[in-house]
Protein backbone atom coordinates (compact mmCIF):
# COMPACT_ATOMS: atom_id res chain seq x y z
CA UNK A 1 0.00 0.00 0.00
CA UNK A 2 1.53 3.29 -1.03
CA UNK A 3 1.84 6.06 1.53
CA UNK A 4 -0.75 8.19 -0.26
CA UNK A 5 -3.29 5.39 0.01
CA UNK A 6 -2.42 5.08 3.66
CA UNK A 7 -2.91 8.79 4.11
CA UNK A 8 -6.27 8.55 2.34
CA UNK A 9 -7.58 5.82 4.65
CA UNK A 10 -6.02 7.39 7.72
CA UNK A 11 -7.74 10.67 7.02
CA UNK A 12 -11.00 8.88 6.20
CA UNK A 13 -10.89 7.13 9.55
CA UNK A 14 -10.12 10.33 11.42
CA UNK A 15 -12.92 12.22 9.72
CA UNK A 16 -15.46 9.47 10.31
CA UNK A 17 -14.56 9.29 13.99
CA UNK A 18 -14.72 13.07 14.40
CA UNK A 19 -18.04 13.48 12.61
CA UNK A 20 -19.70 10.58 14.42
CA UNK A 21 -18.69 12.04 17.77
CA UNK A 22 -20.30 15.39 16.91
CA UNK A 23 -23.89 14.32 17.01
CA UNK A 24 -25.29 17.55 15.54
CA UNK A 25 -23.29 17.05 12.37
CA UNK A 26 -24.96 13.82 11.34
CA UNK A 27 -28.30 14.22 13.07
CA UNK A 28 -29.27 17.65 11.76
CA UNK A 29 -29.25 17.08 7.97
CA UNK A 30 -31.72 14.13 8.04
CA UNK A 31 -33.90 16.02 10.53
CA UNK A 32 -33.87 19.07 8.28
CA UNK A 33 -34.68 16.83 5.32
CA UNK A 34 -37.74 15.34 7.04
CA UNK A 35 -38.93 18.69 8.38
CA UNK A 36 -38.76 20.50 5.04
CA UNK A 37 -40.59 17.70 3.23
CA UNK A 38 -43.32 17.54 5.87
CA UNK A 39 -43.91 21.29 5.53
CA UNK A 40 -45.16 20.85 1.98
CA UNK A 41 -48.38 18.95 2.74
CA UNK A 42 -49.12 21.62 5.33
CA UNK A 43 -48.56 24.41 2.83
CA UNK A 44 -50.13 22.85 -0.23
CA UNK A 45 -52.90 20.69 1.22
CA UNK A 46 -53.18 16.98 1.90
CA UNK A 47 -54.60 15.89 -1.50
CA UNK A 48 -52.77 12.64 -2.35
CA UNK A 49 -52.73 13.30 -6.09
CA UNK A 50 -51.18 16.75 -5.80
CA UNK A 51 -48.62 15.47 -3.32
CA UNK A 52 -47.66 12.54 -5.52
CA UNK A 53 -47.19 14.94 -8.42
CA UNK A 54 -44.82 17.28 -6.56
CA UNK A 55 -43.12 14.57 -4.45
CA UNK A 56 -40.03 13.96 -6.66
CA UNK A 57 -39.23 17.66 -6.85
CA UNK A 58 -39.95 18.38 -3.20
CA UNK A 59 -37.88 15.49 -1.90
CA UNK A 60 -35.00 16.28 -4.23
CA UNK A 61 -34.98 19.99 -3.38
CA UNK A 62 -35.07 19.14 0.32
CA UNK A 63 -32.17 16.70 -0.10
CA UNK A 64 -30.25 19.37 -2.00
CA UNK A 65 -30.78 21.97 0.72
CA UNK A 66 -29.93 19.47 3.46
CA UNK A 67 -26.66 18.68 1.68
CA UNK A 68 -25.86 22.37 1.32
CA UNK A 69 -26.64 22.96 5.00
CA UNK A 70 -24.39 20.14 6.11
CA UNK A 71 -21.54 21.25 3.85
CA UNK A 72 -21.14 24.64 5.45
CA UNK A 73 -19.06 23.21 8.28
CA UNK A 74 -17.03 20.89 6.07
CA UNK A 75 -13.72 22.75 6.31
CA UNK A 76 -14.65 25.24 9.04
CA UNK A 77 -13.28 23.45 12.11
CA UNK A 78 -10.14 22.36 10.29
CA UNK A 79 -9.62 25.92 9.14
CA UNK A 80 -10.09 27.31 12.66
CA UNK A 81 -7.81 24.87 14.49
CA UNK A 82 -5.09 24.76 11.83
CA UNK A 83 -5.45 21.16 10.71
CA UNK A 84 -6.37 22.43 7.25
CA UNK A 85 -2.94 24.00 6.99
CA UNK A 86 -1.42 20.67 7.94
CA UNK A 87 -3.35 19.06 5.11
CA UNK A 88 -2.05 21.67 2.66
CA UNK A 89 1.51 21.09 3.84
CA UNK A 90 1.35 17.31 3.61
CA UNK A 91 3.40 15.69 0.83
CA UNK A 92 0.37 13.74 -0.41
CA UNK A 93 -1.75 15.08 -3.27
CA UNK A 94 -4.28 17.49 -1.83
CA UNK A 95 -7.16 16.43 -4.14
CA UNK A 96 -6.83 12.88 -2.78
CA UNK A 97 -6.99 14.09 0.83
CA UNK A 98 -9.96 16.28 -0.05
CA UNK A 99 -11.66 13.23 -1.52
CA UNK A 100 -11.15 11.33 1.75
CA UNK A 101 -12.77 14.15 3.68
CA UNK A 102 -15.69 14.31 1.26
CA UNK A 103 -16.20 10.57 1.32
CA UNK A 104 -16.35 10.59 5.11
CA UNK A 105 -18.71 13.54 5.03
CA UNK A 106 -21.01 11.89 2.50
CA UNK A 107 -21.07 8.58 4.40
CA UNK A 108 -22.21 10.37 7.54
CA UNK A 109 -24.56 13.00 6.12
CA UNK A 110 -25.47 11.96 2.56
CA UNK A 111 -26.12 8.27 3.05
CA UNK A 112 -28.76 8.83 5.79
CA UNK A 113 -30.70 11.02 3.34
CA UNK A 114 -30.64 8.18 0.81
CA UNK A 115 -31.87 5.71 3.41
CA UNK A 116 -34.68 7.93 4.74
CA UNK A 117 -35.97 8.97 1.32
CA UNK A 118 -38.34 5.98 0.73
CA UNK A 119 -40.13 6.88 3.96
CA UNK A 120 -40.70 10.41 2.71
CA UNK A 121 -41.93 8.99 -0.60
CA UNK A 122 -44.57 7.07 1.34
CA UNK A 123 -45.54 10.22 3.25
CA UNK A 124 -46.13 12.07 -0.03
CA UNK A 125 -48.15 9.23 -1.61
CA UNK A 126 -45.59 8.48 -4.30
CA UNK A 127 -46.37 5.28 -6.27
CA UNK A 128 -44.24 2.26 -5.38
CA UNK A 129 -42.09 2.49 -8.52
CA UNK A 130 -41.26 6.09 -7.62
CA UNK A 131 -40.47 5.14 -4.01
CA UNK A 132 -38.02 2.55 -5.25
CA UNK A 133 -36.39 5.00 -7.67
CA UNK A 134 -35.89 7.67 -4.99
CA UNK A 135 -32.98 6.10 -3.06
CA UNK A 136 -31.33 5.00 -6.31
CA UNK A 137 -31.40 8.52 -7.78
CA UNK A 138 -30.24 10.05 -4.50
CA UNK A 139 -27.46 7.47 -4.17
CA UNK A 140 -26.05 8.62 -7.51
CA UNK A 141 -26.95 12.30 -7.12
CA UNK A 142 -26.00 13.28 -3.56
CA UNK A 143 -22.27 12.50 -3.96
CA UNK A 144 -22.26 14.86 -6.93
CA UNK A 145 -24.01 17.49 -4.80
CA UNK A 146 -21.37 17.07 -2.09
CA UNK A 147 -18.52 17.36 -4.61
CA UNK A 148 -19.91 20.46 -6.34
CA UNK A 149 -20.92 22.12 -3.09
CA UNK A 150 -17.49 21.59 -1.57
CA UNK A 151 -16.01 23.83 -4.29
CA UNK A 152 -18.09 26.71 -2.94
CA UNK A 153 -17.21 25.79 0.64
CA UNK A 154 -13.50 25.78 -0.15
CA UNK A 155 -13.78 29.26 -1.68
CA UNK A 156 -15.73 30.74 1.24
CA UNK A 157 -14.11 28.97 4.20
CA UNK A 158 -12.05 31.98 5.24
CA UNK A 159 -15.08 34.27 5.29
CA UNK A 160 -16.93 34.66 8.55
CA UNK A 161 -20.35 35.08 6.99
CA UNK A 162 -20.12 32.67 4.10
CA UNK A 163 -23.51 30.99 4.42
CA UNK A 164 -25.71 32.97 2.05
CA UNK A 165 -22.82 33.59 -0.31
CA UNK A 166 -22.27 29.82 -0.46
CA UNK A 167 -25.90 29.37 -1.51
CA UNK A 168 -25.53 31.95 -4.26
CA UNK A 169 -22.36 30.31 -5.56
CA UNK A 170 -23.49 26.72 -5.46
CA UNK A 171 -27.20 26.60 -6.28
CA UNK A 172 -26.80 27.53 -9.98
CA UNK A 173 -24.29 24.70 -10.31
CA UNK A 174 -26.76 22.27 -8.73
CA UNK A 175 -29.35 22.78 -11.48
CA UNK A 176 -28.33 19.84 -13.74
CA UNK A 177 -28.22 17.36 -10.85
CA UNK A 178 -31.64 18.51 -9.68
CA UNK A 179 -33.13 18.22 -13.16
CA UNK A 180 -31.90 14.71 -13.85
CA UNK A 181 -32.55 13.46 -10.31
CA UNK A 182 -36.13 14.70 -10.28
CA UNK A 183 -36.70 13.43 -13.81
CA UNK A 184 -35.48 9.94 -12.88
CA UNK A 185 -37.97 9.72 -9.99
CA UNK A 186 -40.83 11.30 -11.93
CA UNK A 187 -40.38 8.92 -14.86
CA UNK A 188 -40.33 5.90 -12.54
CA UNK A 189 -43.45 7.16 -10.74
CA UNK A 190 -45.29 7.23 -14.07
CA UNK A 191 -44.16 3.69 -14.80
CA UNK A 192 -41.72 4.78 -17.51
CA UNK A 193 -38.14 3.53 -17.83
CA UNK A 194 -35.69 5.88 -16.13
CA UNK A 195 -32.33 4.37 -17.04
CA UNK A 196 -31.58 7.33 -19.33
CA UNK A 197 -32.03 9.88 -16.55
CA UNK A 198 -30.02 7.75 -14.12
CA UNK A 199 -27.25 7.34 -16.69
CA UNK A 200 -27.04 11.13 -17.15
CA UNK A 201 -26.99 11.57 -13.38
CA UNK A 202 -24.18 9.02 -13.16
CA UNK A 203 -22.36 10.86 -15.95
CA UNK A 204 -22.48 14.04 -13.86
CA UNK A 205 -21.02 12.13 -10.92
CA UNK A 206 -18.29 10.62 -13.08
CA UNK A 207 -17.44 14.09 -14.39
CA UNK A 208 -17.36 15.77 -10.98
CA UNK A 209 -15.50 12.97 -9.19
CA UNK A 210 -12.09 13.68 -10.76
CA UNK A 211 -12.57 17.41 -11.51
CA UNK A 212 -14.18 18.80 -8.37
CA UNK A 213 -11.36 17.74 -5.99
CA UNK A 214 -8.92 19.70 -8.17
CA UNK A 215 -11.07 22.83 -7.93
CA UNK A 216 -11.59 22.28 -4.19
CA UNK A 217 -7.85 21.90 -3.64
CA UNK A 218 -7.17 25.10 -5.61
CA UNK A 219 -9.89 26.88 -3.64
CA UNK A 220 -8.44 25.76 -0.31
CA UNK A 221 -5.00 26.99 -1.31
CA UNK A 222 -6.43 30.40 -2.17
CA UNK A 223 -8.52 30.56 1.00
CA UNK A 224 -5.69 29.70 3.36
CA UNK A 225 -3.40 32.23 1.76
Amino acid sequence: MSTSTQAFFGLLQRELRLTIRRRNDWLNPPLFFILVVSLFPLGIGPGPQTLALIAPGVIWVAALLATLLSLERLFRDDFDDGSLEQLLLSPHPLPLLVLAKLLAHWLVTGLPLVLISPLLGVLLHLPLTGILALPVSLLVGTPALTLIGAIGVALTVSLRRGGILLTLLVLPLYVPVLIFGTAAVAAAAQGLPNTGQLALLAALLVLTLPLAPLAIAAGLRVSSH
Binding site: L155, T156, L159, G162, L169, L173, P176, L204, A215, S223
Partner: peptide
Amino acid sequence: ALHEAFEDPEIGSRAAAILALVGVINIPII
Protein backbone atom coordinates in the same frame (compact mmCIF):
# COMPACT_ATOMS: atom_id res chain seq x y z
CA ALA B 1 -20.34 38.66 -4.71
CA LEU B 2 -17.36 36.38 -4.15
CA HIS B 3 -15.06 39.11 -5.46
CA GLU B 4 -16.50 41.62 -3.03
CA ALA B 5 -16.50 39.24 -0.06
CA PHE B 6 -12.73 39.27 0.41
CA GLU B 7 -10.96 42.22 1.95
CA ASP B 8 -7.81 41.50 -0.01
CA PRO B 9 -8.71 42.06 -3.69
CA GLU B 10 -5.86 39.78 -4.75
CA ILE B 11 -7.32 36.77 -2.93
CA GLY B 12 -10.81 37.75 -3.99
CA SER B 13 -9.86 37.75 -7.64
CA ARG B 14 -8.17 34.35 -7.38
CA ALA B 15 -11.14 32.80 -5.59
CA ALA B 16 -13.52 34.31 -8.12
CA ALA B 17 -11.32 33.07 -10.97
CA ILE B 18 -11.71 29.48 -9.76
CA LEU B 19 -15.46 30.01 -9.63
CA ALA B 20 -15.49 31.44 -13.16
CA LEU B 21 -13.59 28.43 -14.48
CA VAL B 22 -15.93 26.01 -12.73
CA GLY B 23 -18.82 27.98 -14.20
CA VAL B 24 -17.45 27.77 -17.71
CA ILE B 25 -17.36 23.97 -17.53
CA ASN B 26 -20.86 24.02 -16.15
CA ILE B 27 -22.51 26.40 -18.60
CA PRO B 28 -22.92 23.88 -21.44
CA ILE B 29 -24.06 21.22 -18.98
CA ILE B 30 -26.60 23.58 -17.46
